[in-house]
């Protein structure tokens, strides 16, 4: 028997929240197509297909209502976030593996929607980058730098049939974060690295615009009150502060706050991944702590780790801490101390 309340008023039901999230990703996808070529669309399409396929399979195996759960769009959101974190034009099986780890391992083995401890897209990314470091670091070069920008048809060929006639050097490059790291290791001074064409105004050429579009999408989510300000603000602030501190300590070895904010997955992580409510801390204070931790770790992993980007590992590490953070940041309940605000 269910009791009151008898009238429900839901601004966005869970499936609609997911749809809004996807909507907010569109500007960044558009910018990506414009600046890096249409390759990303292949990744998005494949990830979506594989993710929904695995979701269907697992739902069937678990004997859960198919149509109902497929309509919630959560598999699609995971797929898109994964595709946006992975290099464009990766081989098709990489997407398949990614979708498998995201949907089957990270989501359903933990109990399905709402039960997973770790962000599925980030788990998949982490597994892939550890297992296939080469494939996972060959990113599409910005269109204006690439010798050749693969068309959509060519992109399909590349993903399914491998490189064929095209040399990878023609259309891929390291990401600015990766590039910076290797350059600095070889002793190239910071200003000289930054002067190279791979870099744009503040971050990577092209990438910085995509990051800006993620910011725009995030602003939309904030405006719609689908996320609260706590996580993105704390995340980005922590990235900026940590990066600034490192730069102040050793300007020759560390890029500044703006570069870190505009590069890699910082913006995507701040607005779309760290804010995943299932795996994030949920109290207001907890969110600040959680996101600040993730931002801080992101820069530290970027600066001292061996991987090109630290967002995924930072978020996964904080995912572990989220339940504990929640326990220690429970807000004051009405009528327990306090008084006039």
């Amino acid at each position: 028997m269910t009791g009151s309340p008898y009238n429900l008023h839901v601004r966005y039901a869970t499936p609609q929240i997911m749809r809004q999230l996807m909507l907010a990703l569109l500007p960044a996808i558009g910018a990506h197509v414009w600046l890096f070529g249409p390759g990303i669309l292949v990744g998005l399409l494949l990830c979506s297909l594989f993710a929904v396929g695995f979701e269907t399979l697992v739902l069937l195996m678990r004997g859960q209502p198919l149509g109902f759960y497929l309509r919630d769009n959560t598999a699609l959101v995971t797929a898109w976030l994964l595709a946006l974190s992975m290099p464009t034009l990766a081989p098709w099986w990489l997407y398949l593996l990614g979708a498998f780890f995201a949907i089957v391992v990270a989501k359903h083995l933990y109990g399905g929607l709402g039960q997973n401890l770790f962000n599925p897209a980030m788990v998949a990314y982490a597994v892939l980058i550890v297992s296939f470091p080469i494939q996972m670091t060959q990113w599409a070069a910005p269109a204006q730098l690439a010798a050749h920008v693969p068309s959509l048809a060519e992109a399909f060929d590349l993903v399914f049939a491998g490189q064929g006639a095209l040399s990878p050097d023609a259309y891929t490059s390291a990401t600015p974060l990766d590039h910076l790291k290797t350059q600095l290791r070889t002793g190239t001074p910071m200003p000289k690295v930054m002067g190279q064409p791979l870099y744009g105004q503040v971050g990577g050429s092209g990438g910085e615009v995509v990051a800006l579009m993620f910011l725009l999408g995030g602003a939309y989510l904030l405006g719609r009150r689908l996320i609260t300000w706590h996580i993105p603000v704390a995340f980005l602030a922590a990235v900026a502060v940590t990066a600034s501190l490192l730069q102040w300590h050793d300007p020759a070895q560390h890029a500044g706050a703006l570069f870190h904010l505009a590069s890699g997955g910082a913006m995507l992580g701040a607005f779309f991944i760290a804010t995943d409510p299932v795996t994030a801390a949920s109290t207001p204070k907890g969110k600040l702590l959680y996101a600040a931790g993730a931002g801080c770790l992101t820069v530290i992993i970027r600066a001292f780790g061996n991987f090109p980007d630290g967002v995924a590992f930072a978020i996964l590490l904080m995912n572990i801490a989220a339940p504990l953070i929640d326990v220690y940041t429970q807000p004051r309940v009405f009528g327990t101390g306090g008084g006039k605000p």
């Binding site: 269910t2 008898y6 009238n7 429900l8 039901a13 869970t14 499936p15 929240i17 109902f68 919630d72 399905g112 929607l113 709402g114 039960q115 609260t228 409510p277 299932v278 994030a280 949920s282 109290t283 929640d326 429970q330 807000p331 004051r332 309940v333 009405f334 009528g335």
Partner: peptide, 29 residues
């Protein structure tokens, strides 16, 4: 006037309930 409640989905800990709770509780917990 009173449509049947839509089918329930798993909790995604979005925190809407905590923002609506006048007793300052964390209903999802």
């Amino acid at each position: 006037l009173f449509p049947a409640a839509p089918p329930a989905m798993p909790c995604i800990r979005c925190g809407e309930c905590a923002r609506a709770c006048p007793a300052l509780l964390q209903p999802f917990e």
